[in-house]
Amino acid sequence: MSGSDTVVVTGFGPFRQFLVNPSWTAAQGLKLVGLGEGTDVYIKEVPVSYVKTQQIIAEIWQTLHPKFAVHLGVARGSSVIILEQTGKNSGYRDKDVCGFCPESHCCVEGGPDKLDSVVNMRAVAKELQQAGTDVVYSRDAGRYLCDFAYYCSLYYGQRRAAFIHVPSSGSLTSGDRLVPLLQSLILAMLDQLEDSSETT
């Protein structure tokens, strides 16, 4: 299969109280259920490390050339799914699991201040809210590794990326409930991507 048929899904590695990160469990679940015929799902676990995250994401775009990348992270204290529209380049001051923080406090020196996904996350959130899903729209991914990974992917992938925060509490933490919802969300994003590529 060519990269144009590949959707990359990443989840994060162990972090603080999450010995197994729910975002990685969700990525594995998505690999099992797939994203329909003709789409190859490639999953990758990303360590909660700035250096490794940037290396892995740049490498994904440079070697696999996927159609789209979806990055999953866990939102502590949240019981809903959060769709992130924007990745921000600067303001990274919190240390990662290696005790490291970028000296420049930014993802890509000289990169734009912020980048938005080509997908309109508000529209995707609305579509699923109407179907009764606990999903909300956000423009602030939190200036930590989630935001960092998102920005790097938007930067290297010409904005063909999404970031989804998965809940850490409540009924949606069960994979049986979460994975089908993530699958619906990603399929809605891919539909929008197809539509936009036909019109441009």
Rank of each mutant, 00 (worst) to 15 (best):
Q85D: 12
S79R: 14
L181D: 01
E84V: 05
V80R: 13
Q85G: 12
N21Q: 13
L72C: 09
Y137V: 10
S117L: 11
L128R: 13
I186F: 01
Y144C: 12
A149M: 14
M1N: 01
M121N: 00
G99D: 15
S184M: 00
V119D: 07
P180D: 03
G99Q: 14
G29S: 03
P66H: 04
E45K: 10
V124W: 11
K114L: 00
L172E: 03
K31F: 02
Q54M: 05
L185D: 00
V48D: 07
V136R: 12
G99R: 15
C101R: 13
V124D: 05
R139F: 06
L190A: 00
N21W: 11
D195K: 14
S104T: 12
V9F: 11
V20N: 13
F163G: 03
V124L: 07
E103V: 12
T133G: 10
T25F: 01
S23M: 07
Y156I: 01
G87E: 08
K67M: 08
G99K: 14
Q130W: 03
S196T: 07
K126E: 15
V97P: 02
Q54A: 06
D147S: 09
H71M: 14
G36D: 11
A27H: 05
T199S: 14
E198C: 01
S138E: 04
S169R: 14
E45L: 03
Y155R: 06
L145Q: 05
A26I: 11
A75K: 04
L154T: 01
Q192I: 06
E127M: 03
V118C: 08
G175I: 00
L181N: 05
D134C: 13
C101S: 14
M1A: 01
T133F: 14
L72D: 02
L83D: 08
M189L: 02
V179N: 06
V97K: 09
N21H: 15
G34N: 09
E194K: 08
F12S: 03
T200K: 09
E109M: 07
G73K: 12
